[in-house]
Design a protein around this nucleic acid. Structure first.
Length: 565
RNA sequence: GGGCUCGUAGCAUAACCUGGAUAGUGCGUCCGGUUUCGGCCCGGUUGAUGUGGGUUCAAAUCCUACCGAGCUCGCCA
């Protein structure tokens, strides 16, 4: 039941525009008092060289509303023609339709296939707040795209070649060998070891040399180091996999950049044949100044591969493997230039989809004061620390006697994860975030726990209700609180579509909060069980529909659903 | 110095791509009301588009200059 389509059917009799044009020009008014759908008259008025206000007024005079119309009123207001739905006709139809459809809001299947890479961690290093944000936003985007009807292939990319690996091996061997026996989270522990090695090697040439030796030994497939690397990798990936579960991130395919070193070098050879590559002291340089981009290196002077080298090769592999129409990369915003250069290089190489490459630069995460996480506070930025703190804080807030001490950690975990995911998702990726756990975990305001709580309340109503939900008396739903809630529910598919098309998951996060907020008002003003059975059954029906939509929102946002909290 | 991004009330944010109705929301403040299907909610209050130009019937939105913040500009991932 698409209201816009109904407006189009209505207006096409009166306008000389084609259906599609009318449809696209329709707007949702900023305030319900302007109606449910409005048609702006600016363009048509301009064509006929009349004042838009007059045009709309004149158009209204011509219109006759038939008796069976879903629209109760049509009004001219300034340059707009506003359509008001006849709710007593509309509501029962709409709610029944939603109730029938478990996948309410799912978009029509689209042909476009989108490959989405949204997180690329380095094994043996700890995950940090930035990874959390990307996993939250990227995961949500993947789910929204899928729900909107696109065919989505989420992929994960491990940076498993480079000096950072050698650094960790060095520090482990030298200072921490065997200590792992007493460590439960070995992955996070390795992250600390990496930081230690990084600090120690910074201004120490001797240490740097030792690390280089290990790096070289690895490249030469030295058995001892290869085996050690494998051992540490296992701890690291176990920790990472737990992280993916925490944030509900799923991947269809995992790539390792070490697999693309050789292929990358071959591509450098290909670029040699173009006018964009030249050598400086035996080092290949890609000159993109013609495209207003800075020059960039394709290989290090010692002949080893750089990120760009491997990314080029990987792009070809991915397109070969999945034949995607669009390849989307989500990374930290600091890599913006790198991706411009990558895409341009691919264009030079006549990559099949160079115009369908898309980079989403996600802004950084800072501490709650808006400053960079300081190294003095240890691993404050580390995911392991963030989630641990969040769980502790969540546990303190649980005061429901129905939750036993034994159950508490389980609920605290779900609340903490929901809080973090929502906090990361509610802001546009273009803005930096100040991570404030206290704000994120509040039960009030625009937070994950507020949404979870809203779901709990709705479920509680249905569990405690004496009557049964029924569509028989839906016309009794006529208070403002009920109408506002239904109106919001009606726009859910629109939001899904918009969030997907524009790659902006925060639109859904915002919608979910608005929806929950309207439900709270309904909850307060419209008692369900203490009213006459006919009204009660209608309200229960509405609650049921609400549960369907809010649950879907939570799922899309990756937020765990709880039955009590 | 060049490039990119951001600048909205005390704080945090939406709307900016695709210009249109009174710039929406949360936290906070202050005043009142509710006390339950669970911590909520209701009514009211406070207060914002960095600055200056330009384009337009119309600018938070587009262009431009400046101011401020962040990121980035060949061997780092």
């Amino acid at each position: 039941m698409d209201l816009k389509e109904k407006v189009v059917d209505f207006l096409k009799e009166y306008l000389s525009l084609n259906k599609e044009k009318i449809y696209n020009s329709l707007e949702i008014p900023p305030d319900p008092k302007f109606g449910d759908i409005s048609f702006p008259c600016f363009e048509l008025a301009k064509k006929e060289k009349v004042n838009p206000g007059h045009y709309s007024k004149h158009l209204r005079e011509k219109i006759v509303i038939p008796d069976n119309s879903i629209f109760g009123r049509i009004e001219s207001a300034g340059p707009y023609l506003n359509f008001f739905v006849n709710y007593t006709k509309f509501i029962p139809k709409l709610l029944k339709e939603i109730n029938k459809n478990p996948a309410y809001g799912r978009g029509k299947a689209k042909k476009q296939k989108i490959l989405l890479e949204y997180i690329s961690p380095n094994p043996l290093k700890d995950l940090h707040a930035g990874h959390l944000r990307q996993a939250a936003v990227g995961g949500t985007l993947a789910r929204i795209l899928d729900f909107a009807g696109f065919s989505v292939i989420p992929v994960l990319y491990y940076n498993d070649s480079g000096t950072h690996i050698a650094k960790t091996l060095w520090a482990y061997e030298k200072f921490h060998k065997g200590e792992e026996k007493n460590i439960s989270n070995k992955g996070a522990w390795l992250g600390k070891i990496y930081s230690e090695a990084h600090k120690k090697s910074k201004d120490n040439k001797k240490v740097q040399q030792e690390i280089r030796k290990i790096h070289l030994a690895l490249e030469n497939k030295n058995k001892k180091y290869i085996n050690l690397k494998k051992k540490l990798y296992l701890w690291s990936t176990q920790y990472f996999e737990k992280f993916y579960r925490d944030v509900n991130a799923k991947f269809d395919k995992i790539y390792y950049d070490s697999d693309f070193v050789d292929e990358g070098k071959k591509i450098v050879k290909k670029l040699e044949k173009t006018k964009y590559l030249y050598y400086e002291n035996n080092t290949p340089v890609l000159d993109l100044t013609e495209f207003n981009l800075p020059k960039t290196l394709l290989l290090k002077s010692d002949g080893t591969a750089l990120y760009l080298t491997k990314d080029l090769a990987m792009a070809f592999q991915r397109i070969k493997e999945f034949n995607a129409d669009k390849m989307v990369y989500m990374t930290g915003s600091e890599q913006k230039l790198n991706f411009q250069q990558l895409f341009k290089a691919l264009e030079i190489l006549k990559f099949k989809n160079s115009e369908n490459l898309f980079h989403i630069p996600v802004e950084l995460v800072y501490d709650k004061h808006g400053k960079r996480f300081s190294s003095r506070e240890g691993n404050a930025e580390a995911y392991s620390k963030i989630i641990e703190d969040a769980r502790k804080a969540a546990e303190k807030r649980i005061s429901n006697p129905e939750i036993s001490e034994k159950e508490k950690p389980e609920y605290a975990d779900k609340i903490a994860r929901g809080a973090l995911l929502y906090f990361m998702n509610k802001v546009s990726y273009k803005k930096s975030i100040n991570l404030d756990l206290e704000k994120a975990l509040s039960f009030e305001g625009q937070t994950g726990p507020y949404l979870q709580y809203s779901y709990v309340r709705a479920r509680k109503i249905t569990k405690k209700a004496k009557s049964k939900p029924s569509p028989k008396y839906l016309t009794k739903l006529d208070t403002q609180a009920e109408l506002n809630l239904i109106r919001k529910i009606y726009f859910f598919p629109d939001i899904v579509e918009k969030a997907a098309e524009s790659y902006q998951p925060h639109l859904l996060a915002e919608y979910a909060f608005d929806l929950a907020s309207l439900f709270s008002k309904f909850y307060e003003l419209c008692p369900v069980s203490s009213v006459a059975e006919s009204l009660s059954s209608a309200r229960l029906y509405l609650v049921q529909v609400y549960i369907r939509v809010i649950e879907r929102c939570l799922n899309l946002l990756g937020i765990p659903v709880v039955e009590k909290m």
